[in-house]
Structures are given as C-alpha cells and as structure tokens.
Simulated scan of single mutants.
Amino acid sequence: MISDAARSALHDWLHSQKALKGASDNTIEAYARDVRGFLAFLTEHKGGLQGIGALKAVTLSDMRSWMARCRAEEIGARSLARKLSAVKSFYRWLSEREGFDATAVMAARAPKFQKKLPRPLAEDAAQGVIDTLDLQSQVPWVAARDQAVVTLLYGCGLRISEALGLTGADLPLGGSLRIIGKGGKERVVPVIGPAREAVEVYLRLCPYPTEPDAALFRGVRGGVLGPRAVQKVVEQVRLQLGLPASVTPHAMRHSFATHLLNAGGDLRAIQELLGHASLSTTQAYTAVDTARLMEVYRRAHPKA
C-alpha cells in the first residue's frame, strides 16, 4: 500500500512524463509499476504509509535495503537498474517540485550488467528472410502484407510500431517518408524502391479499402495489424531457414544500420535515420568494433 499523497505525486509525475516528454503508454506503465513497487516497499520497511515528508527523508541505507530486497526476489541486474532509473527520475521531479535535496536517492548505484549487443543478420540472411516471407501464407494479400512490413523495417530502418502506425494518409509512398517516432520525435527516412514496390503489391491485393485515417496494414479481419502477427511469421521463417533465435522483426532494423555503416554510411546520418537521441545507441545497434569506429572518426573529423 502507498499513501494518498504518494499516489497523487506518482500520478502527477507520470502525467508530466506523458505530457512533456512524450513517453509511450508502455513506458508509463513500466514507470508506474517500478515506482509503485518502491513506494510499497517503503511502507513495509518503515512500518507505515509514507507521505511526502517521509519520502523526503529516504536515506541511502533505505535505498540499499530496497535493492537488497529486489535481489532477494531474484530480480536481475538489468531489471533492477531499470527500476532504479525510474525511482531516480521520480525523485528528481519530486525534489524540484517540493524543494528538497534528493542526493541520497541519486547516490544509489545501479548494479553492473553485461549489455547485450543487438545481433544483425548477414546481408544474404536478411534478404532470405524477406524472400521467404512471401511463402508463409496461402492467402496472397496476407503474404504480400507480411513481406511489405518487414521490407520497410529492413529497407527504411523503421521500428515495427512505426511501420504498423502508417495510414492511408502516408500514401502514395514517394522517395521519402515522414515518421513520428519515440517521444514524438519527427524524422524523414528515404524509401528505397523495393520497399515501395512491396507496399504497392500489398495494396493491389488487399481486399480492404485504403482510407486516410485507417491503418495501412490490416489484419485478416480488417482491423489494425498487431506486432505479434509480424513476430510470429518472422519466427516461422527463422525456423525454416535455420537462423538463430535472435532473428526478430527488430533485428531487421539492426541489420539496416549495420549494413549501411559497412557500406560506408556515416554514423551521424544513420543516427538520424534511426531516430536515436544518442549516438551511443546507434553504435550499439550497428554492432561495429572499435577499429571500424575509429576509421569512420578519422575519415569524418576535420583535424584527424
């Protein structure tokens, strides 16, 4: 249980994350779950409901006790680091609103963990996935739909949510496509010929009308195509081709970035195409070694 004051503060913080930072619904739900769990721990740890005054008095020892409880519940280092990040973000906002020093919370150190680098496909494997998608359904328009979606992921570097968020208003596809990504960030991505052609084939076969305010990619009953359907058909292809479990729709986006860089693309340009806020995220997506990064650096830096 948490106090009414703490619940109200949590609600206000979540609203600010949604309104000011454009956090997605999934992110808001994760934030709410993580911070609510922390506040419930304080209730138990302190032996009573914790109002705003008590939240201001949280010590580093309290933080360590909470993290120890999480570890005792076999919460992994990566998940605990995410929870701590959410709690710190909440306290950063709360301390600014209430005017207190949140150093004790901010001083808590996240556990170290080995970051998993994304695993892109080889170019021939990526092409094999796209080609084999056409064989997964006996319904021609469904096969064309699946192929068009994954071609957009690989050919344009779209997130699956971005591809499935396209509507009839985005047609006809030209040389570029305006995408609203995470946090409401807008970017323009080039659309390669094979991606345009795949979408055109799908549109010719799709039995549902194209409407400006309706989803471009439809489910078999005419509703919005969900990500799980795309994940499932890619899994079928992966098994048929004998590819590793790391081959997912999102891996096609990883592959887009890696193959662009291997072809001589600039990291900053790829960062823009992917819609990443941080260049370090792009570096992880491209899964390149230090030597390759230094080569790009020396070629691009004016004083190198």
Rank of each mutant, 00 (worst) to 15 (best):
S176E: 15
Y297C: 13
R64D: 02
L80W: 05
A144R: 13
P140C: 08
M63W: 01
I192S: 10
K88S: 06
S24Y: 01
D25S: 11
A300I: 02
S255V: 04
Y208K: 11
R92C: 00
G76M: 09
S246R: 03
A143D: 03
I2N: 12
R97M: 05
V247G: 00
Q114Y: 07
H259T: 07
T167D: 13
M252H: 06
C70D: 15
L153Q: 05
Y91C: 04
A19I: 06
I2D: 09
G48I: 01
V150Q: 10
V149A: 08
L55T: 01
S3L: 05
R178W: 05
K303M: 13
S16D: 13
I75S: 09
Y202E: 05
L42W: 02
R299D: 14
S95P: 02
E186D: 08
A284K: 03
S79I: 01
T281R: 08
K18F: 10
G157K: 02
L261R: 02
E74Y: 12
V129P: 10
R145S: 06
G222S: 04
L166G: 10
A143Q: 07
S8A: 12
S280H: 14
R82I: 00
A104V: 00
S16Q: 14
H11L: 04
E211F: 01
P111G: 09
L274P: 03
Y297R: 03
A269Y: 09
Y297M: 12
T151L: 03
R7M: 05
V220D: 07
W93R: 01
A148S: 08
R299V: 11
I179A: 05
R298I: 10
G99D: 04
